[in-house]
Design a protein around this nucleic acid. Structure first.
Lengths: 248, 248
DNA sequence: TCGATACTAGAACCACGTTCGATAATCTGG
DNA sequence: CCAGATTATCGAACGTGGTTCTAGTATCGA
């Protein structure tokens, strides 16, 4: 069978003869662009421009924009993985899992463009898959069924992903341009909510003050701990932080 | 101050004189396109074509593609909200919350293009905000601080969002075209995983069988129940399904 | 009847992803 | 050292899509 289309982008892996460019250079520049101005700012032309080359050259190294994005994600995930693997990981499994999830979250805060892509390619070998394995490995030390373990990792990754999806949504252009303070932008939520009829929106009025000074990380940790406490409960452990301590 | 740009799309709300088109017609057609072929299939030109009109007319009703997408989401969310509000909601608060989350999830299964957009616009009045309120209202009946309530709703919404992000990622074109079975496509994960070195990937080998026959809904419910059990624990309630039953 | 408003329509502009063929640099075998 | 093959570079050109603009048509109030 003929392959669907030629992909010269598969292996420029051998020693390059004339390495004026390289896959590393391409990925590096791509990450720079992403870091500077977010996902939509990564265009093939812009990337070629930064590399001082033509668009055709970029296509020699990657098969398209989607591929480029995937590789850029994998590229930075390498660093996260190293960070996670630095520690021994001998403590309580759930605590370890928590630490890893937090590390992952911090990486997404630094690079919101990781968005919800960063755990998408777990079908083939790559840093996403290794990360997934690393997270799950902690669960092997818990008394759970494989299905429960699978669900647990999914759940924990899900907490990070949903936070990432939050962080990843580009703020309005006015905020990026600095015309409007981020504080003011977020404060608008609270202002709008307070203007609503309390009879119709009792919950929003209940939480509006808590929301007004909200902190993304705290929010993430709260969600994570709910899940982890559910997990501890499932594994027959004592609950961790955030659970009610006083007895019945 | 002059407004940033004129937006005639703000209020075609008064009685239209010649309603050959209407905002309802536009949104209806948009939802049709989205349902048929997913988000990328919704183009302004395509939409205009379906409506038998020009692109300019579309821009009369919406201010751009982003706005169109937001309105389409809000449009279908109206149905979900009605579904959720149909029931009385007098039972256990966490059970009610669970029921709502499941309803929301089911809607996303039906329309994967809701993706992770469907809870994005909670700054202004709209069905997203009402949904958010509806979910949170259940928590008013629990003994929690407002901050805890805020975090809890975020967490529950997060579970739905991350599942939605999973469902929303378009399968490869070959699957859409029916050239490759969805079963086979998913089975590839398991096949690849089994080919990995068990020493390096012990976790993947542990769960691969569980993963192979995995069901999206089951997966969602598992994550949801972990979170909800964490919440019950926080509120001083007895745990629900999925928690270990035998006492110490 | 006349102007104003609401709405239709599509040409035109621009940015982008992608393809393609021409070309050059480098390697390999002889 | 010389061909031919391989590896890599480059930008013109194509198609698609979002958005803007301008010209036009219908409907209403006065």
């Amino acid at each position: 069978m003929t392959p669907p289309r030629q992909r010269p982008a598969d292996r420029p892996s051998r020693e390059r003869r004339r390495a004026s460019h390289s896959i590393e250079a391409v990925l590096g520049a791509a990450v720079e662009l992403l870091d500077e101005s977010g996902e939509p700012a990564l265009t093939i032309r812009g990337l070629a421009g930064r590399l001082g080359t033509g668009v055709g050259s970029v296509y020699w190294y990657v098969s398209g924009r989607e591929d480029l994005l995937d590789r850029a994600v994998d590229h930075v995930l390498g660093g996260v993985l190293a960070e996670i693997e630095r520690h021994p990981g001998t403590g309580d499994p759930v605590d370890e899992l928590r630490r890893m999830a937090v590390t992952l979250f911090d990486a997404v805060v630094d690079r919101p463009w990781l968005g919800s892509r960063f755990m998408r390619n777990i079908d083939t070998e790559g840093n996403s898959l290794r990360l997934y394995e690393e997270l799950g490995r902690q669960l092997l030390r818990l008394d759970l069924t494989p299905l429960q373990r699978f669900h647990a990792v999914t759940a924990v990754v899900g907490v990070v992903v949903s936070s990432a999806a939050d962080l990843g949504q580009e703020p309005p252009q006015a905020v990026v341009d600095g015309l409007v303070e981020r504080e003011e932008y977020l404060g608008r939520y609270a202002t709008n909510w307070r203007a609503l009829d309390p009879g119709e929106y009792p919950f929003l009025h209940d939480i509006v003050d808590a929301f007004d000074g909200h902190d993304d990380k705290q929010q993430f940790l709260a969600a994570l701990d709910l899940t982890l406490n559910g997990l501890r409960l499932q594994a027959g452990q004592r609950p961790g932080p955030g659970a009610r301590t006083e007895g019945p």
